[in-house]
Amino acid sequence: MPCSIRTASSAATLAASFALVAAPALAMDPVGTIAGTLDGEAREWRTLSVPSEGTTTANLQSFGPVTMVSIQGHDAESGSIMRGVLSIELGLMGTDASAMRVDESVGYYPDGMSGPFWVAGQEGGPLEIAFDTLALTGDPAAAGTVTADLCRKEGMFDPADTSDCIRLEARFETPLSIEE
């Protein structure tokens, strides 16, 4: 299966985010949570603020008529900020929470950018993202739930194996930074 534009975009976003949080000199503070079960096991991830960079691992960015929302949680129990990352992404065709959604995806990266990982959305299994709150202006924030069947991918450009999936059921709540 060929690589989609979304896959390439997600790879670039993840690589940039991993590079940001991997920088050892940067102080990071937890600002939000994603909590639930992954493959039946209770898990918790934290979205992080990087004050020196004026950003967080949960953000929104506008590209013309599209607003991209990215919520990246880091597993504090993994022993490395680069491992156990959960990424929730979606695009909105507009600039408010009622806009039509496009390109919804969820990814779980147990070993960071190396090794197999798990995806749902355009690739992989089905997913549902439901918002209790999605504020894109003022004090941007997101809260809601995500349910997904995450299917295994051996590499970024390999197809997802829809016969090898794990279930994610989680609740998220985090402020969003505005990326320029």
Rank of each mutant, 00 (worst) to 15 (best):
S10N: 14
L150R: 00
T47V: 04
A8K: 14
V146S: 00
S98H: 08
D149M: 09
V69H: 04
P116L: 08
S105P: 10
E128Q: 13
G40Q: 06
D164N: 10
E180F: 15
S10V: 14
V21R: 06
E77T: 13
D111S: 09
V102I: 10
L136E: 06
A19N: 13
T56W: 10
T47Y: 01
R46Y: 10
V21S: 06
R6V: 15
A19V: 08
T67I: 03
V21T: 09
R6G: 15
M113T: 13
L168K: 00
Q122I: 12
T147K: 08
E89D: 15
L168S: 01
V106E: 00
A160Y: 04
S17Q: 11
L134T: 04
W45D: 02
D103A: 15
A135D: 09
T137H: 11
S17T: 11
L38Y: 02
S114M: 15
T145H: 00
A12E: 13
Y109P: 03
R6T: 15
E154S: 12
P140I: 02
C165D: 03
L20M: 10
D161F: 04
T162K: 09
W118C: 04
L90W: 07
R152D: 07
D149R: 09
A42L: 09
L86P: 01
E128M: 09
I129A: 02
T174D: 02
T47I: 05
L86D: 02
T137I: 11
A120K: 03
A16Y: 07
P159L: 10
P2N: 09
E53N: 09
F18Y: 13
D111F: 13
T95M: 14
F131E: 07
V146E: 00
F131Y: 12
I34R: 02
Q61H: 13
